[in-house]
Write a protein that binds this DNA or RNA. Structure first.
Lengths: 254, 254
DNA sequence: CGCTATTCTCGTACAACGTACGGGAATGAC
DNA sequence: GTCATTCCCGTACGTTGTACGAGAATAGCG
């Protein structure tokens, strides 16, 4: 325990003469999303937060989240590495910008049916479609909780869908959070599985390993499952089934 | 797209004259878990996979997952950094060992009630308790899918609990996966929230920001939720409620 | 008893990362 | 024109995972 008490969470007060904040007292989270006015004085920005975020998203779409390094993003956008820091205070923030950016693809103005279960299911399907389009999203979301404008607009819509339930606010928020968490987890698995299927060697080795374990006599249930898997549904059907179960299980009385 | 096509997934065939594999053809995943026999010849190992894993777990428990670096683990265990690589081929593997290690805390021999819903709920509560004891677990699990002996023993138990449903194997596996995913996500949120509560500045700033957004007129539902949150339950009660909803929503007919 | 093959140990070194620093270039206000 | 302000970005530092390979320990064999 001697050398154990250092270097953990002493990240406070960034400098932030950046383009987003009041440069306030030191501790200031999401002033990010309120950044609007250029001051007029000073050099004109060559790039834009939008462009940088879009480049990062394109990079993640094409090569995965781990390809998103400050150097790669900078070179993709034609900027020097350190220039990025004029638009986002750090990489973590850039990732949040990315999440909110793609969340802008979610439709938020289509009319609701008024049946909250139906509407909630539609919301789940929209989230899944978004995540399949941006396979890095589940991983990015599992760590983060983003509250950008697009994310909030979608939350607003979910709350509107839940209005007929007359549940209290906290419960509505929890339901949305549970729904999002479920979709994130499920699609995360879907993606991992389809990625694993691209490496047939791995998959085969894993199957062989499981068979070995099942054969040891201590895992009769596992053995049975492996020997009689049952017919398999499409990913869409599986998702729908689970989503329906989850939402039909919800009770408007809290 | 010019400099875009390099350095991505060319990690194949590690060397692995290590203590775990047949040193097989190159692609060999979880032979890890089958490692048993020392060859007899050669120098005797000074440390053990167990000890290293336990040290890593202790470190993560005390200082979080990001404190788990090869250097820290090595120094904690009294070894040179590179010695760790005799016991695990890389850090990713060490993390898997950690997951399986703590999964060993899960009881797998207590008698089942025979009512599958009750048993499944108990399993969910066990998972949550484990994750609260090791707050890094949700984050570690969200990326990984571990198939170590302890993890598999617990899966075996879940399958046994599901036996009375007479569902097919694939569905049973999916239900377990959904349950685990749900618990992971939920506890992950719990932990994030309680961590955020330790930074009252952040929390207050976030609340202020949300109030600002709610006041813009475009988020009436959000405004209402924030103004009338409803009484809040304990984390335990909230978890129980959601878990019950999820499991009661399951249908033994598939 | 050495010899030798084998295995574990770990210092050194390297590439890649996020980002602090600070000098230079561009701009609007006066 | 001057000056404060803002942005651009080369350089550099600390930290990370881990490849390499020389040395130390061990067991089997002559």
């Amino acid at each position: 325990m001697s050398s154990a008490t250092r270097g953990d969470q002493e990240r406070n007060e960034k400098k932030m003469t950046r383009r987003d904040g009041t440069g306030a007292t030191g501790v200031d989270p999401q002033q990010l999303w309120l950044s609007t006015g250029r001051p007029g004085r000073g050099r004109k920005p060559t790039f834009s937060r939008e462009a940088i975020t879009a480049a990062a998203v394109a990079l993640a779409d094409a090569e995965g989240l781990e390809a998103v390094t400050m150097r790669r993003v900078a070179s993709e956008v034609g900027a020097g590495v350190m220039s990025l820091y004029s638009y986002a205070p750090d990489k973590e923030t850039l990732l949040e910008l990315m999440v909110d950016h793609v969340s802008g693809e979610l439709p938020v103005t289509d009319p609701l049916t008024g049946d909250w279960r139906t509407d909630l299911k539609a919301i789940g399907h929209l989230q899944r479609a978004l995540m399949l389009r941006h396979p890095w999203l589940p991983a990015a979301l599992s760590t983060r909780r983003t509250l950008g404008p697009n994310t909030l607009a979608f939350l607003e819509r979910a709350l509107a869908a839940l209005r007929p339930t007359r549940l209290d606010g906290t419960t509505k928020l929890e339901i949305f959070s549970q729904l999002t968490g479920f979709v994130t987890g499920h699609v995360g698995h879907e993606i991992a599985q389809s990625a694993a299927a691209d490496q047939p060697d791995r998959a085969a080795a894993e199957a062989r390993y499981l068979a070995t374990v099942a054969a040891d006599g201590h895992h009769p249930e596992l053995a049975e499952v492996l020997s009689a898997p049952g017919r398999s549904l499409t990913p869409d059907a599986t998702f729908t089934r689970f989503l329906d179960r989850l939402i039909d299980g919800l009770d408007a009385s809290g």
